[in-house]
Nucleic acid binder design. Structure first.
Lengths: 144, 144
DNA sequence: ACTTGACCTTAAGTTAGGTTCAGCAATTAC
DNA sequence: GTAATTGCTGAACCTAACTTAAGGTCAAGT
C-alpha cells in the first residue's frame, strides 16, 4: 500500500505519515523505486497513534507503546489488546483526575482561602511544598 | 505587588507572567519607574490560567474566558463563580468523551471491522465523511 | 513515448507556549 | 550613599508536531 492510500484511509496528511516514520513510529519497506510501501497492519498503527494523541500522549510515549508490538510478524488481536490495556489504565487515571477537578471546582473557584496544600484544583506535583516554603495561596489572597 | 512576588506565590516564572501579559491575559499597571504592579485579584487570575491550562485550554481560549470578568472593579466571588460554571460544562463534556473512549476501548482496539461511522474511538469531526467518500476503516483492514 | 499525478528528499517555516540573554533602570537593604 | 537585588525591553532561542517549498523521480494511463 503506497503512502497516499494510507493517508486517504486514515485521514492523515502524507507529510504527517512521513514525519511519523522519521520519529520511528512506523516502519514501511521500500519498493524497487524507493517508494514507501505499508502493511495493512499499519492502518491500525496509525489509528492507535491518532487515538493516543487525542488523549494527550506525546509521540515518544506512543512510540514506546508501539515498540511493545512484535517486530517480525503482523500484530495479532491479542497484541493490540495487550497494548490497549495499558492505555486504558492511563485513561482511567485521567478520568479520575478530571472528575476530582470537576467535583472541587465550584467550592474552590469562589473561595478566597485556598492554600496549596488543601486545594484539590491545583497541585502540580507539589514542587513548592517540597521546597519547604510557606503556603502559597493560589486561588485567593490568603486566609481571611 | 511586584512581579517577583506574584511569581513566588503562584509558582510561575517571571517570564511566563510577562508572556501572559503580552497575550492579554493579565493587565498590571505600571508604577512611576515603569515596573509592573499587580492586584491581589491577579493571583486568582493566574491560578485560573494554570488550572485551565492543566485541563487543556489554550491561552486564547483562556483569554476569552477571562474577558468575561469586569474591567473596572476587582472581580467578586460571584464573577468567579460565573466563570467556573462555563469551565465546568467544558469539563463535563471532556469527561464524557473520555469515558466513552474508555468504554469502547477494549472492543474497539482488538476489532478488525471498525468503520469510521461506527467507531466511537476515533471520529474527529468527520471530515472524510463530509466529503462523501466511502467508509474508511480506521482500526483495521476493512470488514471481514 | 509521453504526460500526469503520486512520490522522493532536504530544508526551512509555523504555532504554542514559553525561556534565555544582553544591557540598562529602578528599588531595597544596610 | 552605595551595593545588591529586582525589574525592564527586545530579540533570539527552544520543543513538539507538523506543513510547505524546491527540485527531482517513479509509475500509470493513452
Amino acid at each position: 500500500m503506497p503512502i497516499g492510500a494510507l493517508a486517504a484511509r486514515t485521514g492523515l496528511a502524507v507529510s504527517a505519515i512521513r514525519y511519523y516514520e522519521a520519529q520511528g513510529l512506523i516502519k514501511p519497506w521500500r519498493n524497487a523505486g524507493g517508494q514507501r510501501r505499508f502493511a495493512r497492519a499499519d492502518l491500525r498503527r496509525l489509528s492507535f497513534i491518532m487515538i493516543a494523541q487525542q488523549f494527550g500522549s506525546t509521540l515518544p510515549q506512543i512510540r514506546s507503546q508501539l515498540d511493545a508490538l512484535p517486530g517480525g510478524r503482523p500484530p495479532t488481536k491479542a497484541d493490540w489488546t495487550r497494548l490497549s490495556t495499558g492505555f486504558r489504565a492511563a485513561l482511567d487515571a485521567r478520568i479520575e483526575t478530571l472528575t476530582r477537578l470537576r467535583d472541587n471546582l465550584d467550592g474552590c473557584i469562589g473561595c478566597g482561602c485556598l492554600s496549596l496544600e488543601s486545594c484539590a484544583l491545583y497541585n502540580p506535583r507539589d514542587a513548592a511544598a517540597a521546597k519547604g516554603q510557606g503556603s502559597r495561596y493560589l486561588m485567593g489572597d490568603g486566609p481571611a
